[in-house]
Every structure is written in C-alpha cells, then in structure tokens.
C-alpha cells in the first residue's frame, strides 16, 4: 500500500469518526448525570439542518456551526422539560425527539435538497495541511481537534473536578445528592444541554464537513451508534475515543470497498456493516462481564422528583 493511500485512509477514518465521537461524548455526560436521552439521532438531525441552513444563507461555516450547537441545545431542552420537569418516560421522550428531528429536519431541509456549500476547511496553513504525509496529522478541520480536546476536557472534568464529582453523584444516587443539598434537576438540565450541544455539532459535521450538501436523513442512524458507543465505553471518555475510531474504521472500510469497486460483496451488505458491528460489540461487551450493567450509572433512566 502506498503512503498516499494510507494517508487518505487516515483522513477518511478521522472524518467519519468525529461526528459519532462528539455525539457519544455528549451522551456520556448526560448518562453520567443519570439521564438516558435516546434522542441523539434527532438532535443531530436538527443540528445538521440548522447548521446547513445558516451556513447556506449567510455563507459563513462558523455561523453554521454556532447555529447547530444552539439547535442541539434547543431540542435537548424539549427533552429536559418533558422528562425532568414533567417526569415523562425517558425512553418514550427520547424516541419522540428522534421522530421530531427526522420530521423537522426534512421539513426545513425540503428547500435545500441537493444544494451545496463550501466544505469546512483545514485549520493549519497549506504547508502543513496539504503536505503529502504531515496532513494526516495537520490536515483536519477545527471540529476534529475540538472533539479530541473535548475528550480530554470531559475526562478531566468528570474525574478531577468537584462539579464533575457532583454530576457523577447525581447519576449514581440522586436521592442522596438531593439530601446533601445539590440541585439534582438543575444539574441534569445542564448535562442534557451539553449533550444537545455536542449532538448538534456532530450532526452539523455531516452537512458542513463530510458531505457539504443537504440530503434527507443524512445522519443515517449514527446517533443510535453513538448511544451504543457509550455502552461500549463503559462510560469512560478514553474508551469512547477508541470505540469511535473503531467505528470510523468500519465505516472507512465500507467507503474504501465501495470506491475500490469490490464486486463480491454487495454494496447493501457493506452498508449493513456499521449496524451489525454495533450489535456484535454490544454482545461482546456483555459476554465480557459477569453481571449486567456493571458500569452504568445507578440512576440511569430513572425519573427523579424532589420529595
């Protein structure tokens, strides 16, 4: 294999890992606070369409990215009000959020189908970002570096800071955290908002960087894969990074095999790969541990109302 091909594979791998890494990292924080938001796919789609619409009308990718974060937070707040304030079922509300995201994004996106914008470009100057092999390190866009920094940041926040400790306490034992005097619901609101922001940004990565073009349902279930990744990571940011890049590798394989015109595997079978891999990974995770849900936050998915 020549170096050029290797470098291009690395570029594809990093690019396809980034959106699921972002979405999964946000969800990890949400779940650490004891909330299960299954609406990742919906928040990603809302972020994707908001980002594209704003970037297309203003011509500014940066504004598009900001809009996607805001759209992600806005949709996450709908979930938060329903589940945290009105104690609605988290599973059902998360599903509703996904159905909402699919409907809203294709309603708003209807006018943008097939329209293209200029892709989000690399951060570093051309000498580095277009260098034959240095570009594997320096040829990425700002969101890629941001996602890696966020992994470090979240890891540090959860394990080394006091607010991080409080957030984990709320997820492990909400009643005790409340009794000590921590505002359980407010902390969960903040976590859900953070999850929404990262899911929105991850969604926008599809419409602004990966395929700078609007297409209906362009996230194609990646939000659900992000949810599975959180389980895979055992709620640890470092393992999440590893998992996201593994999935990126599966997806890169799918793309490379298609591009190479491999004919003995049907393209439909290749397209199944990420979903089958997800099921396989979830299964292996379960085989590897003795008791179920060993690492999940104890209060995950349970509603809390102050007595």
């Amino acid at each position: 294999m020549s170096d050029a091909i290797l470098v291009s594979i690395i570029m594809t791998l990093v690019a396809s890992s980034t959106p699921i890494l972002l979405a999964a990292l946000g969800e990890l924080v949400v779940e650490k606070s004891g909330v299960l938001n299954l609406g990742v796919e919906g928040m990603m789609l809302c972020g994707a369409v908001a980002g594209f619409a704003v970037a297309f009308s203003t011509g500014s990718i940066a504004l598009g990215l900001v809009a996607s974060v805001l759209a992600g937070i806005a949709t996450a707040m709908v979930f938060a009000v329903l589940t945290l304030s009105l104690t609605a079922n988290q599973v059902a509300t998360g599903l509703a959020l996904t159905i909402f995201g699919i409907g809203t994004s294709s309603l708003i996106g209807a006018g943008f189908v097939g329209k293209t914008i200029e892709r989000l470009g690399p951060v570093f100057p051309a000498a580095l970002s277009e260098h034959p092999w240095l570009r594997a390190l320096f040829g990425h866009d700002i969101v890629v570096y941001l996602s890696l920094a966020l992994v470090l940041g979240v890891s540090w926040f959860l394990s080394r800071t006091r607010p991080g400790l409080i957030l984990r306490a709320v997820g492990e034992n909400d009643a005790s955290a409340h009794a000590i005097g921590y505002p359980v619901i407010a902390i969960r609101y903040a976590a859900v908002a953070f999850g929404g922001a990262l899911a929105g940004l991850g969604g926008a990565y599809f419409s602004l960087a990966l395929t700078p073009m609007w297409a209906d349902r362009l996230t194609a279930g990646r939000g659900w894969i992000a949810l599975a990744l959180v389980v895979f990571s055992a709620w640890k940011p470092g393992r999440l990074l590893l998992g996201a890049y593994l999935f990126g590798a599966v997806m890169t394989f799918e793309l490379q095999a298609k591009a190479a015109g491999i004919s003995w595997i049907a393209p439909e079978v290749l397209a199944m790969a990420p979903y089958l891999a997800t099921i396989a990974v979830l299964t292996m995770m379960s085989l590897g541990r003795k008791t179920g849900r060993l690492d999940a936050p104890a209060c995950l998915g349970k509603p809390f109302s102050a007595p």
Binding site: L82, L86, N89, A92, T93, I99, I102, G103, L107
Partner: peptide
C-alpha cells in the same frame, strides 16, 4: 405543505401526549 410536515406533526403529538401525562 411539504410531505415531511406529517412527521413533524406526529412528533408534536407524541410530545404533547407525554407532557399531558403529568
């Protein structure tokens, strides 16, 4: 109205259903 409006309507209905459960 674009066809996608159906999906948004359906999701709104589910949101309000879950909200009125309270």
């Amino acid at each position: 109205l674009p066809q996608a409006a159906t999906g948004m309507f359906q999701a709104l209905l589910l949101f309000f259903l879950l909200a009125t459960n309270v």
